[in-house]
Design a protein around this nucleic acid. Sequence first.
DNA 1: CCATAGATCGGCT
DNA 2: GCCGATCTATGGC
Length: 196
Amino acid sequence: MARLARTTLARSALEVAPALLGAVLARREDDGGLTRAMIVETEAYEPDDPASHAYRGRTPRNASMFGQAGTLYVYLVYGIHHCANVATGRVDEGAAVLLRAAEPVDGLDRMRRRRPGSSDRDLCRGPGRLAQAFHVTWAFDGLDLVTSDTIWLERGDRVTQVTASPRVGVRHAADQAWRFSIEGSPFVSGPRARLR
DNA sequence: CCATAGATCGGCT
DNA sequence: GCCGATCTATGGC
């Protein structure tokens, strides 16, 4: 499987977010096990975006958002869940795409082990679940998805059926339809399965 | 299916 | 102090 090129990620978050649909997130674990899932839902966070962690400038926490395109930005929400993002745009710009949900492809048994009781549909359905299924924590913050042999992105088939909708759980800029998902996929997250 | 509550803690106002 | 780019369990319809 061909890796996603850095040039693909070095565009605005609003361009990269829909482009990541259909791509595959892959992870090689210490024991050699492989985990893969096709991305079905993303959200864009731009530099001038009040909902973005980078909106008020660079801090130790969000530093990875300001790295080169392809840098992995991992943070903790609600004191419990980790979320995985891909830095986009130019160095020091502070833009990123949140990986919200994916359809499991390989390593389902590993994901199930990390998420006991979860249905296969729910293994990667939501940013916190996705991070847990892939065992992505703060230890992965700052890794380069373009060159890392631990976690990376692979090119996928072109996706034509894309739905745009408001981002989940954001208070500011709630009118922006900056959440992108593969239309009709049962692996998309959200309070309700219905979008639009 | 839908709504609500509780968990839990790092980072910033 | 306060508040999240969330998830799960539970209770109602």
